[in-house]
Write a protein that binds this DNA or RNA. Structure first.
Lengths: 127, 127
DNA sequence: TTCGTTGCAAACATTTTGCAGTTTC
DNA sequence: GAAACTGCAAAATGTTTGCAACGAA
């Protein structure tokens, strides 16, 4: 991790991500914080999301309609994406990654670090 | 499905996708077909990929470095993405979708149509 | 005072689209 | 001949970046 200063805006972005389960896009974060930080710029949101991702306290969980969606919940879980409204929801299940890898009997020459499991469909409101 | 004419270029795009396991991007397809179809344009590749996707004979399997990657293999399987070189490889395992859904004990209010399981890491060459 | 951080706007890359001409049936 | 398809270039979109000013330690 490269040396970093404490920054109010970075903190605010991270805390906003921690406080929501909407898996927001950069733009959503920008609009949400703009009232409290009128001089915030979208570039700063993108830059900080990247830094937070490098620091492994945030990750991108899906791309919905061309937009990266972020999550500050770092424990292993999956997501449901509504194909109609674009909502992204957490999906929990009883196995952790090791178990899933065992269960599905993967054989691969490659070194697997992590995985991303996304379910697609229509959410209950959109059905 | 909307009414469609037979088109040589659409056919060529589809056959190229069928013949490869590299999970190519639109640009890769364009460059591969350009010698044989010198008047091919990138817009046509994008337009046809969209049509083929709507016809459910092709699907987008991953976004790597901001590029959509396509696959004409429609049976349920997963993918490995090398974080270093961007290679996308098929991963097969012994369960089909129903089984995976059962195995991981998902409970959700939503109507799940399909899922996408991507493994990330470094491929054997990049390790 | 040093160096990380930011706003701003321009640059970028991928994808989409309008239109006029072409191909398919 | 009607409707689908295409090339081309322009536009749209989401994201990144250069730079000068600002902020934190």
């Amino acid at each position: 991790m490269r040396s970093q200063n404490y920054s109010k805006k970075r903190q605010a972005i991270y805390e906003l991500l921690l406080s929501t389960d909407t898996h927001p896009s950069a733009d959503w974060i920008y609009n949400k914080l703009k009232p409290e930080y009128p001089d915030l710029s979208l570039g700063t949101v993108y830059r900080n999301l990247k830094v937070l991702e490098e620091n492994q306290v945030v990750k991108s969980v899906a791309v919905v309609g061309g937009c990266e969606r972020y999550d500050a919940r770092m424990s292993q879980h999956s997501h449901f994406v509504c194909k109609r409204c674009g909502k992204v929801e957490d999906i929990f299940y009883c196995e952790d990654m090791t178990d899933l890898l065992e269960i599905i009997h993967i054989s691969s020459d490659h070194h697997i670090d992590n995985y991303n499991l996304i379910f697609y469909g229509n959410c209950s409101k959109c059905s």
